[in-house]
């Protein structure tokens, strides 16, 4: 029986691991965690647009070709194309200032990859939370569904909702830093305050949350059309909208 809580600063944020592995020893779990953490740092080195020597930065400057970059770069850019198609252009990694920028998807992809390695190693209950983008496996140690609070867009001390989540949840918003999301379709009007997407893959949930944060109500419907994915939107005026299958937890009920 082994159990670990670990926090790691990487990818410009803090990633927390909550892991339980009843059939693993503590040493084996530590090794698995170490591999997961190393993978996050490796992905950060590969994909950071803020690190001048990252393969992604060099690709953006035209110093290397895609085939010269690590294989993961082509994989992630292909995923960006898929996400762009599924979101009907609301997520567009290829329309960013400064060149291709998979930032809206790559964190989710990296966290999901880290989780997959841990599960393969024998972890049966896992929460990998990278700055609010969360990949989940199994059940929490207390049992029942994972209950994830969505932060209130304007109140640091409050939650807007508690959602029951099985695999992945990502929230995108502009509430701390002002506008930083780019609308690839160049629309006017205030952007949503907060956009949350749940679904089986954190990679896609991350990209779709970005899409809903940009497209608002217009992007909500396309999330509903993707099997397994749900969205919860807080508009700029504080009103809410959500897809039919989203699961709100009763915040006052005991888990």
């Amino acid at each position: 029986m082994a159990s670990i809580v670990h926090t790691e600063e990487v990818m410009g944020t803090v990633v927390s691991f909550h892991l339980d592995a009843p059939r693993m020893g503590e040493a084996a779990l530590s090794v698995a965690l170490g591999a997961a953490v190393a993978g996050l740092h490796r992905d950060d080195e590969t994909f950071s647009p803020w690190k001048p020597q990252s393969p992604l930065s060099r690709l953006r400057r035209g110093e290397i070709r895609l085939e010269d970059a690590p294989a993961e770069v082509a994989e992630v850019l292909a995923l960006c194309e898929v996400a762009g198609t599924l979101s009907r252009g609301w997520f567009d990694a290829f329309a960013m200032p400064g060149g291709v920028d998979p930032t809206g998807l790559v964190k989710g992809w990296s966290l999901e990859r880290a989780l997959a390695g841990l599960v393969e190693a024998g972890v049966t209950s896992a929460m990998v939370n990278g700055g609010g983008d969360i990949a989940l496996h199994g059940e929490p140690p207390t049992g029942g569904p994972w209950r994830i609070g969505v932060r209130h867009p304007w109140r640091p001390d409050a939650l807007a909702a508690v959602l029951e989540v099985e695999r992945a949840i990502a929230t995108s918003g502009e509430y701390e830093r002002g506008r930083h999301l780019v609308d690839p379709l160049g629309r006017l009007g205030p952007p949503p305050a907060s956009a949350t997407v749940t679904g089986p893959s954190l990679t896609l949930a991350d990209a779709l949350a970005t899409a809903v944060a940009v497209g608002g109500d217009a992007a909500l419907g396309l999330v509903a059309a993707i099997d397994g994915y749900e969205a919860y939107l807080i508009r700029a005026d504080g009103t809410e909208a959500f897809t039919e299958g989203i699961r709100f937890a009763d915040a006052d009920a005991d888990a």
């Binding site: 929460m127 994972w146 867009p153 640091p156 509430y175 006052d252 009920a253």
Partner: peptide, 13 residues
Amino acid sequence: KVNGFSGATYTSE
């Protein structure tokens, strides 16, 4: 009552 938080701000994290 909740296991984690989505949409955390940098400062609060």
